[in-house]
Design a protein around this nucleic acid. Sequence first.
DNA 1: CACCATACGTTTACGACGTATATGTACACT
DNA 2: AGTGTACATATACGTCGTAAACGTATGGTG
Lengths: 248, 248
Amino acid sequence: MAIEKDPSAGPTAERRAPGRRAGDHGRYGRLSRELVLTAALGLVDREGLSALSMRRTGAELGVEAMALYRYAAGKDALLDGLVEALYAELEEELAASEESPEWRDELHRIAAATYRVALAHPQVAPLLATRMLAVPLARRPLAVLRDHERVLALLNRAGLDEEATAAAFRAVNDWILGCILGDLRAMVDNPDEPDPAFRLGLHRMPARELPRLRAAAPALARRAGPEGMAVGLDALLDRFAPGAGATE
Amino acid sequence: MAIEKDPSAGPTAERRAPGRRAGDHGRYGRLSRELVLTAALGLVDREGLSALSMRRTGAELGVEAMALYRYAAGKDALLDGLVEALYAELEEELAASEESPEWRDELHRIAAATYRVALAHPQVAPLLATRMLAVPLARRPLAVLRDHERVLALLNRAGLDEEATAAAFRAVNDWILGCILGDLRAMVDNPDEPDPAFRLGLHRMPARELPRLRAAAPALARRAGPEGMAVGLDALLDRFAPGAGATE
DNA sequence: CACCATACGTTTACGACGTATATGTACACT
DNA sequence: AGTGTACATATACGTCGTAAACGTATGGTG
């Protein structure tokens, strides 16, 4: 998972080899930040964000709640850890496919990978919106900052000046996040219900006062998908990074 | 018992105004859904989402926590109520400025108003992302559905077919939400700090491994603002609602 | 070997939380 | 005057985050 070390986790002595010994608690062996985050991520994936508590995460690892505080300064830090885990997964995802020499294609590749990772963890994805608001830029996990760095480098390669780079960066990030949240919205209610219209609880919509919405609802239940995101991304890039290999 | 409460109780001691009936609770008079939501909104605006609890909201109204359950089925419903309150404010905002006959201008007007309302309640705005994921379309507050209906009607007026309408609708919504969250992000840390770069905790950013980010950070601290949102909105509309009064 | 500092997990405790349930209380009717 | 109903309170339970104090195993040092 490639989790960074928690800087708040005291003076880190060299970690022991992964051998088991007496006093080990739980089937996972000795704790580590990565184990804690993995357990938390699994718990949230399975039971949702509201099921995440220090005690339950500890139980997941066969350990008391307080044991986790060595690896995450508190519950908020644990949530931030989930974001970190997602970005770690993004880096794996990016490493798995081939890098493109074209900055625009590369942006598309990053956007698509981000989208995939986020939708693979629908319960965690909302944290991408909320935790980012609670943590200032420079305190965000390194994986997040590296992602930002990557995107900035690409825009820079496109020949944008500082101001235009910032504007394009914002546009790209905002669009990706918006698309992710929007498509998650289309999955709410019962994800197992095959009929998308029913998934949205479409019955009981007052057709009289909301005719267009009633009519459009089945179409709205469809997700934009990576394709929709890509189309919009191109549209935004054409506007915010003009003259630099625009589509059409 | 309502009549003989402890008369020395702080905020409730002087709360009975002349002309009120005995049995009134709190300086706001009898409870109502609107009062509850207003109190909750005020509390969150002042102290943040984490300060919102049934007990504290009740205290705000001079009432026990359980009294709120008549007006909001539980804490989640209270959060949904905050979203509802925001959309109610949006409707006021829209009523305050003049409607445009041009569908595209009208979309801009709606987007700008949404942006204003959201940024006016930075602590509440994240709920626009999170609660929408917890509530299926048809169960969302009426004010939300009316907003959707308005936007759909405008796109319909632009002559889009059903599929294109849905795609454009998603794009518009996703973009607005993304812009709102992105600009809120630029306000985190210390909102009173006049220097935007410092607001982001820019000190302590490892300049070695993140050169572009370090250089771009001051620019990133600036918000896109309604202008940035408007530019992107036009770009998206040009792509998703082609041939219908495109800019340039 | 003996000794100890340190890293790591547990125990205990406290106050706040959401909310189910049962219990008043005041008002609108007859 | 009596009664049903709408409304708020009182009480209680289980869970939460986490501060503080406490063991205990480990690996480095004499």
